[in-house]
Each structure stands twice: as structure tokens, then as C-alpha cells.
Design a protein around this nucleic acid. Structure first.
Lengths: 349, 349
DNA sequence: TTGAAAGCGATACCAT
DNA sequence: ATGGTATCGCTTTCAA
């Protein structure tokens, strides 16, 4: 590590030679002079059993003194279930929109007394190994962002005790609840908007970055669908998220003969718009530009960036869905369409 | 939920009336006609014990047929340890920089065979409850972003078996390894840059958004320190991340009598710069602006945004630190300074 | 009001 | 080469 490094001077070297074993409820019981059962009763406030105030105090005291913390694994092993909601880390780079959604969701599930846990192992395409890794933790519910989980994975999770499996992706998976993020609708919106405003030769930015095809492909399809049966054409425009590639694209803009572009999202839109302007093109005169995600960013550009505003489900609603599903695992999968897409027309289109 | 909803038509209603219990190693043993011990040997490829090829096949077969997945809780209970690295969700809104760092880190730890788990419960300021919640999971290591964990929390985690506690914050915590993100250095950089270029009345944006004080306070201090013993003044400028507030600030700009501003980061810088431009001010003539984080965004603005480039530790390095610490829990805490900060001078300052 | 003991699922030692 | 069994930490039923 190429950084300054300092050893803390004062270090009681002897302290950790024999690291004390982690205190268990047995230790607490011994110190308090009661049985393990009593410890459990006191610390869990078991209603059905009455324990004298004096004993309670002694137990709490002992627990505090030892720094006792119950062992979640042992507990859920005994209980036969946990309240862990597992969420694999998304396989795609997440934007601010999605991030806020995640935060909200975690908070909402926390309020419902679930423990939210993001598992570092993402799902490859139809990857049963990933599903198995998640299943080992015996979560009560699994929330999978993006594709990558197949029907077999869902079955595996359910057979491992997951009472609810929810996917958050463009397409539903057999057996799982689905929050359908209809990215085709996003493209469709944008495409129709551009067509309505008289544009006929439409470019669609497709990010070169890996992991984004999940979103970019349906968005492209959406544009195609929007102008099908018209005289408009749709041209795919691969673009990496860096200035050089944007400049290159801008340089050959004239030769492409396009009059409008749906730039995948606001960030790519900004990148491309800047490159086009630097190449001397007028926005929207020479080329209309529209992004997506409705980031603050777009409002600050000149001309102000038109965009497709996306409405993600609220964390509270999704948390409620999970809770419902956990309570009634037998219920048939719910399929929700959760991407409200609408054009916010500003000045760039 | 205000969205289209569809019930999947085909639902074998009877299938889940009595949800089959989750298969255990006992079930596998029974089906394969062997003992649980043998099952364990086979599935874990135990080297010390030799099992006939025929038996192995039968066991694997049975496991596959039942969809058997080992129970992580039971396993780690028996083993007395796990390879879970726990990371509380950061309490502050994370930017793209930090996000990429996290992704890289997860990947690197995964390569070292750790299971990375993000716990939804963030730490309040010196909140022992949060620490307790994490300790219940008996992680082998805990990685805490931001402040919020006190020495007591560290002690609690260690007494619960955590072999490494690493904080990622501006200040070290007694007993824990620390990756010191020296945000004061960021402010110092920016402050000195502005001063060197002849600016004397310096404003410093302090985001109004909650959770950001952890970063904004030391950055402000850094600027103050940079111009201490000079004739320059430093003015604190509270700013919410929205256009209205930025416009308000821009409107009273003249009355503030400032000639330069360190805008906390590139996003706030863009917001403010736009507002100032809209108010008719020339950048950098009437007001020099510098941001931080060196986002792509800044290069696309006109004038191009000067910024403080931050060098975060590589995920691989941090993963290595964690691994080292896990192997030698007795070692004294390492203190690393991990924010390489340097000014990238462009056109806005 | 409290304690003894069974059992959750997986593993590893010690027999056979 | 395989099986019996004690054990990890905790909860809960049943007895006292």
C-alpha cells in the first residue's frame, strides 16, 4: 500500500496473547448464578414466564459485564427461521437513482424488523452457484436486482426455505414475484417524443460498458417499436463513457445523417451533447438530444436536457410486498410494472 | 402500489399447501443409504478420509436430487467461526467514486474466499446498538465506513469474535485498524490552490444535506488551515442540493464580497457554477470555482471545472489488509492515510 | 419462580 | 471405508 503508515505506539502486547473466548449465555448464567434457561427468559423478555425482579437485574448485570451478545446463527438454527432479507449486489453499475431506492428500501425493511443483508456474490446469467451461495444463509426472502436468476435458482431458494423471492428486472422469472422494470417503455417514450417532434433519423446510444446491456437492449427495442410502421430509421450508436470516444462519435456525426439521439441516460447524454457542441453542432437544431433518469445534472446544462423521468417503486411499497409474501408464501406470484416513464421536455429536443 | 398488477394464471394451488421441509444432510444420508458423517465427508471433500467412488456418487446423486444446500448457520456454529466480512451500509449518500471502490473491494474479498455482507443497519454516532446488531452475526471482520463507531463498539465487536475491525473515516478509533480518509487535506489542497492564484476572500460550500458533515467539516477546516496566517478570509456557505437554493446563494453573491469558492465537490460545484453564471457572473473572473472528486462531469462543463482529485485505496489493497489482520489479530492496529489529494487545475479557477 | 434436558444442522473425533 | 456420537449456542417444553 503506497501510503504513509504508522504503528500505534502504545500496545498492550500481552493483552491478546490468549484471546478470551466469546462469552456465551452459559457464562452469563454462571456469573449471575442462574440457569441458561433463566438467562434466555430474561434477555428475551419472554412474556409467558415470570422472573423475579432481583434475578432479572442480576442477569442483565452479568450480561453487561461480560459484554454478552447473542449468537444469531445459534438462535436462528434453533428457531428454524430468521428475518434476514438477502439482496445480492447488483451486477451493473448503479446510478444515484437506484442507490436512493436501495437506501429507502433498507430503511423500510428495517422498520418491519427485517435484517437487510447485501451479499457480495452477484448472479451470473442463470447461475445456480450464486443462488446456492445465497441459499446457504437461509434468508426468509431474497430480492434479486437484474436478471441472472433462472427458474431453477428460484426453486433452489424456495426449497431452502426462502418464503419470498422477488426479482427486479425487465422480465419475470417463473415462480418469483416480479417488479418489472419496463425499460422498453423508456425507449418507447423517448422514441415517440422524438418522432412527434418531427425527427426521422434517430440514433440510440448503446453504452460500451459491460453489464449495461440489461437496460440498454430493451431501451433500444423500445425506440424501434415506437417508430415501427413509420418512415423513421433507428441507428445504434455504441459509446464508451469517456471524452475521446464521444469526440470520435461527434466527428462522424455528419456522415451518419442523424437528426436526433436518445442517449441512453442523462450522463451519456451530457457527454455526447458536449462533444456535439464542441464539434460545432447546434442542439437541438442540428441534433435533438434526450436522456433518461431525470438527474439534477440535466437541468443545469445549456440547453437544458430533455429526459425520460423514471418512477421507481417506493422502498415502502416494496418492503410491504416482501412482508406480504413472507406471511403468505403460498400466494401466487405478483407481477408489478414499476417503471413509470414519462418525458420531461426541456430545451435539447 | 399504484401500478398495473397481474396474477399469474396457472398456479398449482395444492403444491405449497404443506411446504416440504428444507432437506438436511440427514435426508441426503437416508436417501443415499449412508450416515450423515459420510455425507459430510463426501460433500466437503475431506482429504483425511477416503470414501469409495461408488459411495461418493450415491451421495452426490442424492444431494442433487433433493436440492440439498448446507446450512451456513449450522456450519459456522459447529466450526466456531465464519468467513463473513461485514460492512454496515454507509450512513451518508455515496457518490460514484465510493461506489466503485466498494464494488472493487467486494470482488477482491471474494477472491480471498470471504463472503461480503452489507448490513442494512448503519451506525448512529457512537451507537453501541448498531455494533451489537453486527456482532450477533459473528463476522470474522468488520469494515465500518464513516464515523459512528466508538472504542466501546470496537471492543464489543472484538469480544464477539471479530478478528479485525477496520474503520474508513477521517479519524482513527482506538483499537481498530484505520484507513484515514484525510478530508482536511482535500480542503487544504483547494484552499492553498485558491490562495496561490491570488484569491483572498474564499467561500466554502457546506452541504445542507444530513450525513455529509463527516466530510464537509474537515474539508472546511482544511481550507481554514491553508490560509491561516495570511490575510485571506474563509466564509462558510450552506447550500442545499437544489436549483432554488443555489439561485438564492448566487443572488446574494455580490453582497458576500467573495472572489473564490471551494464547492465541497464537483456536483455542488456544477450546481453553484451554473447558478452564478445564470446570475451574470463570469467564471473564474468574478468568482473562481473549484470542486472535488474529479468526476467526468467536471471536464464537460464550460469553463472546465477545476477539482481536487481523490485517490481512494484500491479494493485489492484493503482486502489484503483485512486478510492480514484476520490472520494476525494480535498485531497492533495499522493506520493508513488513504486519500491522495491533488489539485487538477482546469479553467474555472 | 427456576432448572434439566431435548433438539436445531453440520462436523470431526474415535471406533469399527 | 464407514458409522456412532459429542459438540457448537440457544430456545422452549416439561417438571419441580
Amino acid at each position: 500500500m503506497p501510503y504513509v503508515m504508522v504503528q500505534i505506539p502504545k500496545t498492550p502486547a500481552a493483552a491478546s496473547l490468549t484471546p478470551r473466548p466469546v462469552p456465551t449465555s452459559t457464562d452469563v448464567a454462571r456469573l449471575a448464578g442462574v440457569s441458561r434457561a433463566t438467562v434466555s427468559y430474561v434477555l428475551n423478555n419472554t412474556g409467558a414466564v415470570r422472573i423475579s425482579e432481583a434475578t432479572r437485574r442480576r442477569v442483565h448485570e452479568a450480561a453487561r459485564e461480560l459484554g454478552y451478545v447473542p449468537h444469531a446463527a445459534a438462535r436462528s438454527l434453533r428457531a428454524g427461521h430468521s428475518r434476514m432479507v438477502l439482496m445480492p449486489a447488483p451486477a451493473f453499475p448503479v446510478g444515484p437513482l437506484y442507490n436512493q431506492f436501495l437506501t429507502e428500501l433498507q430503511w423500510a425493511l428495517g422498520r418491519l424488523d427485517y435484517t437487510v443483508v447485501q451479499h457480495g456474490t452477484a448472479a451470473g446469467p442463470h447461475d445456480d452457484d450464486a443462488a446456492r451461495a445465497w441459499a446457504e444463509l437461509r434468508p426468509v426472502a431474497v430480492l434479486v436486482p437484474g436478471s441472472g436468476l433462472g427458474p431453477r435458482g428460484v426453486e433452489l431458494l424456495k426449497r431452502s426455505g426462502a418464503r419470498a423471492v422477488v426479482t427486479l428486472a425487465p422480465e419475470a422469472v417463473e415462480g418469483a414475484h416480479a417488479l418489472l422494470m419496463d425499460h422498453e417503455a423508456v425507449g418507447h417514450c423517448a422514441g415517440r417524443h422524438l418522432h412527434d417532434r418531427g425527427h426521422r433519423r434517430i440514433g440510440v446510444v448503446v453504452p460500451a460498458e459491460a453489464g449495461l446491456e440489461v437496460f440498454s437492449a430493451p431501451r433500444l427495442r423500445g425506440v424501434r417499436r415506437a417508430v415501427a410502421d413509420t418512415d423513421a430509421t433507428v441507428t445504434e450508436l455504441p459509446l464508451a463513457y469517456d471524452e475521446r470516444d464521444a469526440a470520435r462519435l461527434a466527428a462522424r456525426w455528419a456522415s451518419l445523417g442523424l437528426d436526433a439521439v436518445f442517449a441512453y441516460n442523462d450522463e451519456y447524454a451530457m457527454l455526447l451533447m458536449r462533444a456535439l457542441q464542441d464539434a460545432g453542432l447546434d442542439i437541438p437544431g442540428d441534433a435533438a438530444v434526450i436522456g433518461a433518469d431525470d438527474l439534477m445534472l440535466g437541468r443545469l446544462l445549456r440547453p437544458r436536457l430533455s429526459t425520460v423521468h423514471l418512477e421507481l417503486p417506493s422502498g415502502r411499497d416494496l418492503a410491504a410486498l416482501v412482508d406480504r409474501a413472507v406471511h403468505d408464501p403460498g400466494a401466487p406470484p405478483e407481477l408489478h410494472t414499476v417503471l413509470g416513464a414519462r418525458v420531461v421536455h426541456r430545451e435539447s429536443s
